[in-house]
Design a protein around this nucleic acid. Structure first.
Lengths: 193, 193
DNA sequence: AAGATAAGAAACACTTTGTTTTATAACAAA
DNA sequence: TTTGTTATAAAACAAAGTGTTTCTTATCTT
């Protein structure tokens, strides 16, 4: 990829995330992004068809990266010997978030964070699907699989949200424990088929 | 209140909800609302400072109503004799939603429904707080109360969401059962203090 | 060095926003 | 019915934003 393209793309992404930590998505105009990124009007539209597409590409880059990183975590592929750290992937995820390398936390804690939560949740579902290939229930009533996966993904996002809203006072282990406490009664982790 | 005000307010609310079931909030302009409501430009701004305030007032009217209705439900005030329909308030809520009197479902199923989910969730928290005055845990680890309440509220909203995404094929009782299955292991319903 | 490609500047028609001004109609109370 | 009040409407307005076009300049790749 052309170095010029890389630079402008990075400049726009940078300006965009910076603006997002200031004000809500709706209140940000393309003009502001252009000014902040110090980029020509024509250039912006050459890269992104619209503001929504810019958002989309940013989210895909960030969340896909963080989820992929968690998926590559040893625990995902190891043969789970019964009860050894059943959801360490989530702890890994939280720790990764805590580092805040690519400002994902800035986005998730921004006003109108709904958009990012949606992308986050969407990416989480596939992680959960891979994490709990077999879902069995402690209750008598069987739940639809996609319902359960959605529930778990949502619970995780809400946990992170709650954490952020408290300025991340608790350390990653505590947060992971909260999440598993809320989730674990419903599911049991079985071996990968 | 002046009859003229009532009429325009109703006209604007009507036009707004109609538009919301068509397109997403961001894509709706004040101009469109004005045109659809058949109301003068000046009139709109005399009623609502901005589009966001319009949304806010609409949501408050709708959700406050539906939550209040559920709170008034007998189960909330009755002395809970152990295990008689522990969460019938939620069933009541779902049934109320199903009637879709005030088009809440239209809003919740609209594109970019995040905004409504936020209001919904916010209103739910107080309901849950009143419903489970005492929260005890089946697990050893005590969870922060606001974390738990947030989790339950979010789980309910997600349940409704999932329901809507499946075109509400399941009847209200099944949905309530799903929700309680996911929630019940964590909490136990104790008597109101 | 040469051709391809990306960036930038300026201007454009267009829409949206929120305000102001003035005039008309509906209202409530006497 | 009359009177004073208040809501509405129409039109015009400046300001800002959007997305596109044209043309020029700078920067890459080979």
């Amino acid at each position: 990829m052309d170095r010029r393209q890389q630079k402008t793309r990075a400049a726009i992404f940078g300006a965009f995330t910076a603006l997002l930590s200031e004000k809500s998505y709706n209140q940000i105009s393309v003009q502001e992004i252009i000014d902040a990124a110090n980029v020509g009007r024509t250039t912006f539209y050459a890269h992104f068809e619209t503001k929504d597409y810019l958002l989309k590409e940013l989210c895909e880059e960030l969340f896909a990266h963080i989820i992929e990183s968690a998926m590559g975590h040893p625990d995902t592929h190891s043969h789970p010997s019964a009860y050894t750290a059943p959801g360490s992937v989530f702890l890994h995820l939280i720790q990764h978030l805590q580092k805040n390398d690519n400002h994902i936390l800035d986005l998730l804690s921004s006003e109108n964070n709904d958009i990012f939560q949606r992308y986050f949740k969407s990416n989480l579902r596939q992680l959960i699907l891979s994490q709990f290939l077999n879902l069995t229930f402690v209750t008598n009533m069987p739940l639809p699989k996609d319902y359960l996966i959605n529930h778990i993904a949502a619970a995780f996002v809400e946990t992170v949200n709650w954490w952020i809203s408290r300025n991340m006072q608790e350390n990653a282990e505590v947060i992971a424990a909260y999440f598993l406490t809320v989730i674990h009664p419903i599911i049991t982790h079985e071996s990968c088929v």
